[in-house]
C-alpha cells in the first residue's frame, strides 16, 4: 500500500537534465558561429560514447537500462566535456575523456547521485595532465573551415599550424611570466586584434551565450541564483582588486568573467547538484571557493584555465561545507521571536 503524499509536482531528473542541455544551446550556437561546426562533431562523439559507456556499465551493474539512460545525466556530462575540450582535439581524446568521466568518475563511485566529483571536470583534469599539449590546442576565432576541423579530429595527420591559436588566457599567462620582457596585460591583449574587446574575440560571445542559457535556468528554477552570483561576484571582486593594485600585471574583472570557462563554470559546472554543496550558505561558499581557486590557478598556476581543478578541490570540501552550514531548523533559531520572547 502506497503512503502519502499521493500527489507530486510534475518534475523529474530527466526534465532537469534536458533543461540544462537546452540552456547550453545559445553558447553552442555562438561557438559554431565563431569556431566552426567542429564542436558539433565533438558533441556528437561525446554523446554517443557517453550513452554507450553508460549503457555498458549499467548493464554490468545490473541496473535498469531504460530508466537510467533516459535520465539525461550522461548527456549533460558529455556535452560539458565536449565544450571544455578543444574543439579540434583528436577524436580519441574526447572518447577517452568521456570514458573516464562516465566509467571512473561516475559509476565507480556508485552512479547517478553518488559521485563526489564532477565527472566532466575529472575528465578534463585527467586529460590535461595526460595530454597537456593536445588539450591546449584551440582553434583561432573565425576559423570555420569544417573540412579542416574534420581532418584535425579524425585525420591521422594533423596539420594544425594554420588552425591553432593561443587562447587569451594562455597568451596572457605565457607572456606575462617571461622574465626578459616587460609585458603588460594591455600589451598582450591590446596588441592582438583577435582577442576582441572583452574576453577574447569569439569567446566573449560564447560566454554571453552561456550567460543567457544560465539565466534561463535560474528563471526555470533548475539552478539556484546563489551559485552563479557567488561565483561571478567573487571572481570579479578578486580580479578587480588586483587589477586596481597593478593593472599592468593583473587582468581586470571583465576579462576574467568573459574568458575561458568562467560563464560555463558559473552556470553549468559549479551548479552541478550532485557534487556541489546543497545548503544555502554552503552553495555560496562552494561557488566562491571555486572562483577564488580559479583566479589563483589562472594567475599563478601552471594550467591555462583553473575551473576544472578548482571545482575538484572544492568538491572535496563539500561534505565538510554541508555539515558546517546546516541551517537552524524551524523554531530553533535563537533570538528570532518578534516580541522578544525566548523559546
Amino acid at each position: 500500500m502506497l503512503n502519502s503524499p499521493y500527489i507530486t509536482k510534475p518534475a523529474s531528473v530527466s526534465a532537469v537534465m534536458f533543461k540544462v542541455l537546452a540552456a547550453l544551446l545559445p553558447g553552442i550556437a555562438a561557438y559554431v558561429w565563431f569556431f566552426g561546426a567542429g564542436i558539433l562533431l565533438q558533441i556528437a562523439l561525446a554523446s554517443i560514447t557517453a550513452l554507450a559507456a553508460e549503457a555498458a556499465v549499467l548493464a554490468m551493474r545490473g541496473k535498469p537500462l531504460g530508466l537510467f539512460l533516459k535520465d539525461g545525466s550522461a548527456l549533460v556530462t558529455a556535452w560539458l566535456i565536449a565544450l571544455t575540450f578543444p574543439s579540434i582535439a583528436p577524436w580519441w581524446l574526447i572518447v577517452l575523456g568521456v570514458l573516464v568521466a562516465i566509467v571512473v568518475a561516475k559509476h565507480l563511485y556508485g552512479g547517478l547521485g553518488q559521485n563526489p566529483f564532477n565527472p566532466a571536470m575529472v575528465a578534463f583534469c585527467v586529460m590535461i595532465v595526460a595530454y597537456p599539449q593536445l588539450m591546449s590546442q584551440w582553434p583561432a576565432a573565425g576559423f570555420t573551415d569544417f573540412a579542416a576541423e574534420f581532418r584535425a579530429i579524425f585525420g591521422a595527420d594533423r596539420h594544425l599550424d594554420a588552425i591553432v591559436m593561443a587562447t587569451p588566457l594562455d597568451a596572457l599567462r605565457t607572456v606575462l611570466r617571461l622574465p626578459e620582457t616587460r609585458a603588460t596585460v594591455e600589451g598582450v591583449l591590446g596588441s592582438n586584434a583577435t582577442f576582441g574587446n572583452i574576453g577574447g574575440r569569439g569567446w566573449e560571445w560564447v560566454a554571453l551565450g552561456y550567460l543567457a542559457g544560465g539565466l534561463w535556468l535560474i528563471q526555470q528554477g533548475v539552478i539556484s541564483w546563489r551559485v552563479p552570483t557567488a561565483f561571478l561576484a567573487t571572481l570579479g571582486l578578486i580580479s578587480g582588486a588586483f587589477a586596481l593594485v597593478d593593472a599592468t600585471q593583473y587582468a581586470g574583472p571583465t576579462f576574467h568573467l568573459f574568458t575561458g570557462g568562467a560563464m560555463l563554470g558559473a552556470f553549468f559546472i559549479a551548479t552541478d547538484p550532485v557534487s556541489g554543496a546543497t545548503t544555502v550558505r554552503g552553495q555560496i561558499i562552494f561557488a566562491a571557493g571555486i572562483a577564488l581557486l580559479t583566479w589563483i590557478i589562472r594567475t599563478f598556476g601552471a594550467y591555462p584555465d583553473g575551473i576544472a581543478f578548482a571545482t575538484l578541490l572544492m568538491n572535496i570540501c563539500v561534505p565538510l561545507i554541508d555539515m558546517r552550514t546546516q541551517r537552524p531548523v524551524f523554531g530553533r533559531k535563537t533570538g528570532k521571536t518578534p516580541d522578544g520572547r525566548q523559546p
Binding site: V13, V16, F68, L112, G113, Q114, V274, Q283
Partner: peptide, 9 residues
Amino acid sequence: PEMPCIRCG
C-alpha cells in the same frame, strides 16, 4: 520509479 537522490536541494 524512484531515482537516486541528486542532492538538488
